[in-house]
Design a protein around this nucleic acid. Sequence first.
DNA 1: CGTTGAACCTGTTTGC
DNA 2: TGCAAACAGGTTCAAC
Length: 279
Amino acid sequence: MPELPEVEVILRQLRPGLQGSTISHFHVKRSDIIQIGLSSHQWYIGSRISGLDRQGKSIIFTCQKGKDTRYILAELGMTGLFLFRSASTGYEKHIHITFMLENAKEPMLHYWNPRRFGRVYLLEEKELQQFTQRRFGVDPLSMTHQDFHALVHNTRGRLKAFLLNQHKIAGIGNIYANEILYDARIHPNTQGNQLSKAAMARLYTSMQAILQKAIQFGGSSIRDFRAPDGSRGQFQEHHIIYQKTGTPCPSGCSTTIQRLITERSSFYCPTCQKHVSSH
DNA sequence: CGTTGAACCTGTTTGC
DNA sequence: TGCAAACAGGTTCAAC
């Protein structure tokens, strides 16, 4: 579930909640969730969380112990959450990891994930660098229009697939890819290298605007998503196209929103979203 | 290199 | 009502 906006919302609660904290206990209930570095998990006991960051849809904890620095990288997959103790009632069944914290606002942080897509990686500096390099493209919120133009221009495949490709742009998932393409009035199957300059500019603007707006509204809580304190996002109430099959296009073009079943579900308006070619 | 489909899991909704 | 199928925010891998 969590795409860039949801992960950003999570981070914005984790930072003040965990500020200055030391991990006093690291309880792993399901060891297969730790994909790399399980044998080093004891190291983290007594370490201080000195930073919380995001790469694409992943959350990275920076941990300090003496002069050593190590990292915890957490993927949330489709259904993963970080929950403070106060929000964890009723979530007991799928808590796979629990961090007990000292000197923090929050005494406990749970990693909850019923479908168990998504893993946790315990990494040293070099491993983290290799991991992030291999895996994450540019961040859509900090990339320039020039960077974006170059990436899209070199893409022969469909724009929908491009937006979802984490190696190129890291953070967009199915909800926001659909919303962005509708906002820019571009057909999801348009080829990247066929996009006109004007459409390219619209796509870039829509991408940043939609993601920023989603963050402001606390992300999208379609089903499971909750912030660490248990609160729901509100952006699902502002979805224009996602899961709106059969309803009239809000532009007033009197066309019904369609769903493409190829790739992940693509929702679009066949009238408003044309293939935008520069020729 | 790009596309497609399947696989990994559990839970909820939909349709007959 | 009951049961099976479809579907869900992600990522990877094999096959073509």
